[in-house]
Write a protein that binds this DNA or RNA. Structure first.
Lengths: 117, 117
DNA sequence: TCTATATTTCTATAATTATAGAAATGTAGA
DNA sequence: TCTACATTTCTATAATTATAGAAATATAGA
């Protein structure tokens, strides 16, 4: 039973694909770029919007994509929400690019659907 | 004059974004995965289509995306076209993920629009 | 509680991308 | 040249994603 490239129809879009989708947009890649320069402390959503010159609603849409992909995280401080890069997922992508076969095997072995961070 | 996140409207979609777009699709990521297992010699388009169970026209569409992103290359042998991974671009992506600021600076410095390989 | 501020969600619309049959192109061999 | 085969391009259609104003939500401070 060759399971190599088999994929259940019901199987939702993989986290790896989600991550590449997230990075595959000019605005979102610029956000990633910006967040990298800001370190762990992150940067308020409003500042990102101002820096990129885009409406808050549009920014929110893109932040959701990056968050769903677990490429970024956020924390609220008062009425401000700070966004920051989550390097765990970035490292996973690098690993995937270097060796997709090994990374996929590892993923299948360790994925237990309860992963949080 | 802050050029940090400035981007000319006329400026076409960057090669990095193009690459992430290319990898951000289940079928295309599966193609990448498959090609990695096949090494330098590559694999005929027809075999990819058969392995994935998709029509040739659909495959061609996705191969174009990966080729435009320079993630894969091809060579014709008779009536067969072989596709293979081009690791130069993969390495560039890894570099970008690790340090987007440095990678972007390097890109700006070395891009002369005549890059072929 | 009232008001201002920060951000997100809702919604409609615009724009882009994906799919795949049919037609076209390129190549090999008879 | 004729036929078969491999692949790509053309085309229409379906599906998805992006955009941004308006409304909603959350929090802080007066």
């Amino acid at each position: 039973m060759s399971t190599k490239y088999f994929r259940k129809k019901s199987m939702k879009i993989s986290n790896i694909v989600k991550s590449f989708i997230a990075l595959g947009h000019d605005t979102r890649l610029t956000i990633y770029n910006l967040l990298v320069t800001k370190g762990e402390s992150g940067i308020p959503a409003g500042e990102i919007a101002a820096e990129l010159g885009i409406p808050g609603a549009t920014l929110s849409f893109h932040l959701t994509s990056l968050s769903d992909a677990k490429l970024i995280g956020s924390r609220r401080e008062g009425r401000t929400v700070y966004y920051f890069v989550k390097y765990k997922r970035v490292k996973k992508l690098i690993k995937y690019l270097k060796d997709p076969v090994a990374a996929t095997a590892l993923e299948a072995e360790t994925t237990n659907e309860t992963e949080v961070e």
